[in-house]
Design a protein around this nucleic acid. Structure first.
Length: 577
RNA sequence: CGGGGCGUAGCGUAGUGGCUAGCGCGCCUGCUUUGGGAGCAGGAGAUCGGGAGUUCGAAUCUCCCCGCCCCGACCA
């Protein structure tokens, strides 16, 4: 039982000056966490209990799914990370340090290497697989910009799992088992979330999905179709545009277009010159970029920007993209800045990438590769060729859903889980093999799965707070019932004690406000701020032999007889989410 | 890393060259009060982020450094 009279807790009346997002503000005010340094927080008793509750739900669901818990140190030698190249690849985000002998160590940002080596050390037969291991552990990443309190910290608690299979089919199965376990976990945490397709990015591998908890303060943007349920990270959205039949489109027509440096001015001129009907979406923007110092042109409709993030995510094997600078234009004489069209790309040695919106057979207005000249009726496949199609154009609210064509919405969310099929990258680098039925050595294929446990504390808070404080789901809250004794009569405190003890005896955890001499207002405000789902007030109503039961979230109140209080609460709890 | 803002007691803040750095919350003592952040009286608590400089005099001006927050870049 938590007793407010002795609990190590001080709630704050004012919002802390350095907290802006609701979860941060309230977790600090209600005495769950305190800041130590940017992105580094200490946990006070209420915070620790809440974090543990979440941790235990995660652990329970992992165990139910048949995954086995192990534990690694956070402090790791450089070795394994050297072998996979991540000692350098991870860059400045990696916390590095040296021991007294000058040997290099790191604080683990994620543990693929260690898990791979652990399995390698114990197993060597296909008979041992499939296998899934997990740990709940503190991770360290020297984020360029920690933010939003506990949402993006430099130290955070994460549950990470890894699956090991011999075959690709086995990996898919392990992946699906994790997916199912994640669904039960987040459901139990009473979180609202969407499972969205993601691009696997630098980690390599194929299939990848993110569990995103929608909320205003989220830092991830994703696309959602409310009709068919399609959901994807913006980077992973696919564009479906059918090829069209170009026969009947008039021949390419070059025309004078002085003083048209922007799409808007070009459209204006087109409408003046050719009798109207043109808009930005009919023009073709030809963006010049350097991809690992090789020139590429990226074609997008004139009314959209190139989304560099999407482009980068979808350009396999390219590590650095930058826009053309004047020096680059100087090197490619065929490219007339402001009047570039894809028609002569081959001559200039430029590889042409096009967003799928530039479908084969479509006709465009674009630059004519000569100063002050544009061309219309420029047809993809007839007047220019696309080397590769790549998702590059920015995505907008109202774009057609790739599954059902309904206009999509764009929303923000916090990433609370990520599952993906890693493949053989780490097993290969660290030589994790098993012998198959034929005695032949096979490289193991892996999956990697993460849940941000400390981040979930914030994400849940973000999804369930109101003007007066936090409102935890029953299983997450630091206690299920907050028993508040108000008044100065001993009988009030004795009754509160008795009910609290009875509740605990029924397995219902209690926080008891047994502070003497604290005014009722203070106790109510604290209870509301702390956010325990049921508040039971022992006070005025006691004269009629009653206590007051309040549901924190809905605000519903009722009076029940003292003797019936425990039963009433036992009945109420399962109805609360 | 670029842009913006900020740093004064545990928390929130006032003070833009001049007396002993002010106020609210919280904390301690006493009395009163007890259903919505109580009242009165008394009290403790501050290297004014750090260093250097300008000045008769610096929380206040200058320079350097450190830290924090927000936007962006970045982020298995």
């Amino acid at each position: 039982m938590l007793r407010m009279s002795t609990l190590f807790l001080r709630t704050l009346r004012d919002d802390p000056a350095d907290a802006e997002v609701p979860s941060h503000r309230l977790l600090v005010r209600a005495g769950y966490i305190r800041r130590i340094a940017a992105g580094i927080y200490s946990w006070l008793p209420l915070g620790v209990i809440t974090l543990r509750n979440i941790e235990n739900i995660v652990r329970d669901e992992m165990d139910k799914a048949g995954f086995q818990e192990v534990h690694f140190p956070a402090l790791l030698p450089r070795d394994a990370y050297e072998q996979t190249g991540r000692w350098t690849d991870y860059g400045p985000d990696l916390f590095r340090l040296q021991d007294r002998k000058g040997a290099d160590y790191l604080l683990g940002p994620t543990h693929e290497e260690m898990f791979t080596l652990m399995v390698k050390g114990e197993y060597s037969s296909y008979k041992d697989l499939p296998l899934s291991l997990y740990q709940i552990q503190t991770k360290y990443r020297d984020e360029a910009r920690p933010r939003s309190g506990i949402i993006r910290g430099r130290e955070f608690v994460m549950k990470d799992s890894y699956s090991f299979d011999v075959t690709d089919e086995g990996l898919v199965e392990s992946y699906m088992r994790h997916r199912a376990a994640y669904i039960s976990t987040f459901d139990r945490l009473r979180m609202k979330y969407n499972i969205v397709s993601a691009v696997s990015g630098a980690m390599g591998g194929s299939a990848s999905e993110e569990f995103l908890a929608p909320c205003e303060t989220g830092e991830d943007t994703y696309v959602l179709c409310e009709k068919c349920g399609y959901a994807a990270n913006v980077e992973a959205v696919t564009t479906v545009i059918a090829a069209s039949d170009p026969s009947g489109i008039a021949a390419l027509d070059v025309f004078d277009s002085p003083n048209t440096p922007t799409i808007d001015t070009l459209v204006e001129l087109l409408n003046a010159k050719f009798g109207g009907g043109y808009d930005g979406s009919m023009t073709l923007k030809n963006v010049m970029l350097m991809a690992d110092e090789k020139p590429i042109a990226v074609l997008v409709p004139g009314d959209r920007e190139v989304d560099l993030k999407r482009l980068q995510a979808n350009l396999a094997g390219v590590s650095e993209i930058r826009v053309f600078e004047d020096a680059d234009f100087a090197k490619f004489k065929g490219l007339v800045k402001g009047y570039i069209g894809p028609q002569d790309a081959k001559k200039s040695g430029v590889t042409v990438y096009a967003d799928p919106r530039i479908a084969p057979g479509t006709s465009w207005v674009t630059g004519a590769n000569a100063k002050d000249k544009h061309a219309r009726n420029v047809v993809n496949g007839r007047d220019f060729t696309v080397d590769h199609y790549v998702e590059a154009a920015q995505i907008r609210q109202g774009d057609a859903c790739p599954k059902c064509s309904t206009p999509v919405i764009i929303d923000r969310a916090i990433e609370i889980g990520h599952i993906f099929q890693l493949g053989r990258k780490y097993a290969e680098a660290l030589n994790l093999t098993v012998l198959d039925q034929n005695g032949k050595s096979q490289i193991v294929t892996m999956g990697s799965y993460g849940i941000g446990v400390s981040r979930a504390v914030a994400a849940i808070a973000e999804q369930s707070y109101d003007e007066i404080g936090l409102c935890w789901p029953v299983e997450v809250a630091p206690a299920k019932v907050h028993v508040v004794a108000t008044g100065k009569e001993d009988v009030v405190f004795e009754t509160a004690e008795k009910i609290a003890a009875d509740l605990e005896a029924r397995g219902i955890s209690v926080m008891l406000d047994d502070r003497r001499g604290t005014s009722p207002g203070v106790k109510f405000k604290d209870a509301e701020l702390i956010g325990i789902p049921v508040i039971l007030v022992v006070g005025k109503a006691l004269e009629q032999g009653n206590v007051e039961v309040r549901a924190r979230k809905s605000g519903e109140k009722s009076e029940v007889a003292v003797a019936a209080a425990v039963d009433a609460i036992a009945a109420l709890l399962p109805t609360l989410s």
